[in-house]
């Protein structure tokens, strides 16, 4: 598989990969901070657990949004060009996957706004 094709796959799955990273970090950090009794620490007046979750959610959301918009633009400019059917398909799939991922990433970070950190 060529490097370009590997990149296409990564872009297509980008949002889901971002969600997986977000999920791993927020669960890992919450477990560690709560397990070690460090959850009372604050960062700029916000509880450390909530701060980490919000920051991770933003860090996952922004690149996914950029990839989503980039794919939309690229797909529109593809019309009329001699792209292979597989390439066009991967772009369409990428738009759908990254679009869904945007919602999932926000949804995944939502518990930080509602629940106490370590209760």
């Amino acid at each position: 598989m060529s490097g370009t094709r590997t990149l296409h796959v990564l872009v297509m799955l980008g949002g889901m990969i971002a969600w997986a990273v977000q999920f791993t970090i927020i669960y890992g950090v919450t477990s560690t901070l709560c397990g070690r009794g460090w959850a009372d620490a604050t960062l700029f007046g916000i509880g450390i657990v909530q701060a980490v979750i919000v920051a991770t959610t933003v860090l996952a959301f922004v690149p996914t949004a950029l990839v989503f918009m980039g794919l939309l633009r690229a797909y529109r400019s593809l019309e009329g060009e001699d792209a292979s059917a597989a390439t066009a398909f991967m772009m369409q799939a990428g738009i759908l996957i990254n679009g869904l991922s945007l919602i999932v990433i926000l949804w995944q970070g939502a518990p930080a706004l509602i629940l106490p950190a370590c209760a």
């Binding site: 949804w107 995944q108 518990p111 629940l115 106490p116």
Partner: peptide, 12 residues
């Protein structure tokens, strides 16, 4: 487990 952790899995 802490409720926040459960919340992550509930969301997913």
């Amino acid at each position: 487990l802490p409720k926040m952790s459960l919340g992550f899995f509930s969301a997913a």
